[in-house]
Amino acid sequence: KRLCLVCGDIASGYHYGVASCEACKAFFKRTIQGNIEYSCPATNECEITKRRRKSCQACRFMKCLKVGMLKEGVRLD
């Protein structure tokens, strides 16, 4: 089984260019469509796991980008 490159949960397929789970796919889409900017309360190096993926949105979004999710893949309509 493929794992989500962002949080390590089971991937539902390839989304925005990267093997990812439904939760991270939806999080990435919401962030881009809403043009949301997050800031990390710590040092921008929070560990993102299935259990902790909700704890820091800034680091989760940075990890989405780091593993290769493409903003261009999100439709803005």
Rank of each mutant, 00 (worst) to 15 (best):
K1H: 03
R2W: 06
R2D: 14
R2K: 10
R2L: 09
R2N: 13
L3V: 11
L3Q: 11
L3W: 04
C4S: 01
C4L: 01
C4F: 00
C4M: 02
L5W: 06
L5S: 07
L5T: 11
L5V: 05
V6Q: 01
V6S: 02
V6A: 04
V6I: 14
C7N: 03
C7M: 01
G8C: 05
G8A: 10
G8F: 06
G8Q: 14
G8K: 09
G8L: 10
D9V: 04
D9K: 07
D9Y: 05
D9M: 07
D9A: 08
D9W: 06
I10E: 13
I10C: 11
I10P: 13
I10D: 15
A11C: 08
A11H: 02
A11E: 09
A11Q: 07
S12A: 13
S12N: 11
S12H: 13
S12F: 10
S12I: 06
S12L: 08
S12G: 11
S12R: 11
S12K: 12
G13W: 02
G13F: 06
G13T: 04
G13D: 11
Y14P: 06
Y14C: 13
Y14G: 12
Y14T: 09
H15C: 04
H15V: 05
H15M: 06
H15P: 06
H15T: 05
Y16R: 04
Y16L: 06
Y16H: 05
Y16Q: 05
Y16A: 12
G17W: 05
G17F: 03
G17R: 04
V18Q: 05
V18G: 07
A19C: 05
A19I: 04
A19M: 09
A19N: 12
S20K: 07
S20C: 15
C21T: 01
C21Q: 00
C21N: 00
C21V: 01
C21G: 01
E22N: 15
E22T: 08
E22F: 04
A23H: 08
A23L: 05
A23S: 12
A23W: 15
A23Q: 11
C24G: 00
C24A: 00
K25R: 15
K25C: 15
K25T: 14
K25Q: 15
A26G: 14
F27I: 04
F27T: 02
F27K: 04
F27A: 03
F28A: 06
F28Y: 01
F28L: 05
F28M: 06
K29R: 13
K29Y: 02
K29G: 14
K29D: 12
K29H: 10
K29W: 10
R30Y: 01
R30P: 00
R30M: 05
R30W: 09
T31H: 02
T31D: 02
T31W: 00
T31I: 06
T31N: 03
I32D: 02
I32Q: 05
I32G: 05
I32K: 06
I32F: 09
Q33I: 02
Q33W: 05
Q33L: 09
Q33F: 03
G34M: 11
N35V: 09
N35G: 15
N35C: 09
I36K: 09
I36D: 11
I36H: 08
I36G: 06
I36W: 07
I36T: 06
E37D: 05
E37C: 08
E37R: 05
Y38H: 08
Y38C: 06
Y38V: 03
Y38Q: 01
S39L: 15
S39N: 15
S39I: 15
S39E: 15
C40Y: 07
C40K: 01
C40I: 04
C40S: 03
P41F: 07
P41R: 08
P41G: 14
P41Q: 11
P41N: 14
A42F: 07
A42G: 11
A42Q: 08
A42I: 13
A42S: 10
T43Q: 08
T43W: 11
T43K: 15
N44H: 06
E45S: 08
E45W: 00
E45N: 07
E45A: 08
E45G: 12
C46T: 01
C46A: 00
C46Q: 01
C46V: 03
E47N: 10
E47C: 08
E47Y: 08
I48G: 08
I48L: 07
I48C: 06
I48F: 06
T49R: 08
T49N: 12
T49A: 15
T49W: 08
K50M: 14
K50G: 10
R51W: 12
R51C: 01
R51N: 10
R52M: 10
R52E: 14
R52F: 11
R52T: 13
R52V: 12
R53W: 10
R53G: 13
R53Q: 14
K54I: 13
K54D: 14
K54L: 12
K54E: 14
K54G: 14
K54H: 14
K54M: 13
K54S: 14
S55D: 15
S55L: 15
C56Y: 00
C56E: 03
C56S: 01
C56N: 01
Q57T: 06
Q57P: 10
Q57F: 07
Q57C: 08
A58S: 06
A58Y: 05
A58T: 04
C59E: 02
C59K: 04
C59Y: 02
C59R: 01
R60V: 10
R60M: 14
F61I: 10
F61V: 06
F61Y: 07
M62N: 07
M62V: 12
M62L: 09
M62H: 04
K63I: 04
K63F: 00
C64R: 01
C64Q: 00
C64S: 05
C64F: 02
C64I: 04
C64L: 01
L65H: 01
L65G: 03
L65S: 04
L65T: 04
L65C: 11
L65W: 02
K66V: 07
K66T: 14
K66I: 03
K66W: 03
K66Q: 11
V67T: 07
V67D: 02
G68R: 00
G68S: 00
G68Q: 00
G68E: 02
G68T: 01
G68K: 04
M69Q: 01
M69D: 02
M69G: 02
L70I: 13
L70M: 11
K71Y: 07
K71S: 11
K71G: 08
E72H: 05
E72V: 04
E72G: 09
G73H: 09
G73E: 14
G73V: 09
G73M: 12
G73T: 12
V74S: 12
V74G: 10
V74C: 04
R75I: 11
D77F: 05
D77I: 03
D77Q: 15
D77W: 06
D77M: 05
